[in-house]
């Protein structure tokens, strides 16, 4: 394995020299930019570049792995979360960010999502939610609007969409936020807050898929920003209920819904605490 630092794009730190293949205008470009700026900003605040590691799932969203120049694993569809948790157990001093999609996290890898909320590893999960399996050319995911007709579901998707924020809250997530992919500055700020959070930080990023689910475009006028105020669990739940993912009515709050502290997975394990205290990885541990 050669050093991918050699593949850094000139004049654009943290980007590789690979040209993105996302569709023109796809919000994935913007999510990439928010993430890149967030890491750059964190580096200015003292975080070290080499301590960041990323994991991607498989889908359009996952292509960020080839464009963002951080160490990591381009993993399996649905399995980015366990891969990322493993990385944290393998070296608790890393700052791990998992980049995933709604098909990835809410369909194929749902069990990992719930258990990650329970385990509370100190890592960040981003879900690019375009309410569609897009890389496989547009089928309904658990968050797609009810009745959506696709080539594989010509009768329409019968199911009510899942509300992933309510699920994350009830499963014990300690940081729950939502962003709008097209608001690069706000998304950057939320990603920074998520990385700084000591615990499992989950950020749902709503985005449209211009090609397969353009209906999602309609929701722009429903979006509003939350204030920075600290909220109780019930207040956060009520806010989460404001949007049911059916894209018909209601309001879509974005920002940090809920933030609380609980012992992290790493803090529970004396072995990992020891590595954190000494600021070393298993590799450096004398046995």
């Amino acid at each position: 394995m050669k050093n991918a630092m050699k593949r850094e794009r000139k004049g654009q730190p943290l980007a590789t020299d690979v040209n993105p293949t996302w569709c023109p205008g796809c919000p994935d470009h913007m999510i990439f930019e928010s993430a890149r700026r967030a890491v750059l900003s964190l580096m200015k605040q003292g975080y070290k570049r080499e301590n960041f590691a990323m994991v991607s799932g498989i889908g359009c969203h996952g292509k960020i792995f080839d464009y963002l120049n951080l160490s990591g694993i381009y993993g399996l569809h649905g399995r980015a979360i366990p891969t990322a948790i493993g990385m944290k157990i393998g070296n608790p001093n890393l700052k791990v960010i998992a980049f995933t999609g709604d098909g990835d996290t809410y369909s194929e890898g749902m069990e990992h999502f719930i258990h990650a909320c329970r385990f509370n590893p100190n890592m960040t999960l981003l879900v690019n939610d375009n309410q569609s399996f897009s890389l496989t050319t547009g089928q309904a995911t658990p968050t797609s609007q009810q009745g959506w007709k696709t080539k594989t579901e010509p009768l329409g998707d019968f199911n009510k969409p899942l509300n992933p924020l309510m699920l994350a809250l009830s499963a014990g997530a300690t940081f729950v936020a939502r962003c709008n992919a097209r608001d690069i500055e706000h998304t950057q700020k939320i990603i920074e807050e998520a990385v700084k959070h000591n615990g499992f930080s989950y950020v749902e990023i709503i985005q449209d898929c211009l090609i397969f689910n353009p209906e999602a475009l309609k929701r722009d006028k429903m979006i509003y920003k939350l204030t920075d105020k600290k909220r109780t669990f019930d207040e956060a739940m009520n806010l989460a209920k404001e949007f049911d993912y059916n894209l018909k009515d209601g309001k879509i709050p974005i920002g940090i819904f809920y933030k609380t502290e609980r012992k992290t997975l790493e803090e529970e394990w004396p072995q990992l605490n020891n590595l954190i205290k000494k600021n070393i990885s298993w590799k450096d541990l004398k046995k």
């Binding site: 891969t83 493993g86 157990i89």
Partner: peptide
């Protein structure tokens, strides 16, 4: 998958 993540680290 965790094992692969940890091994990579």
């Amino acid at each position: 998958n965790m094992a692969l993540g940890a091994s990579f680290a």
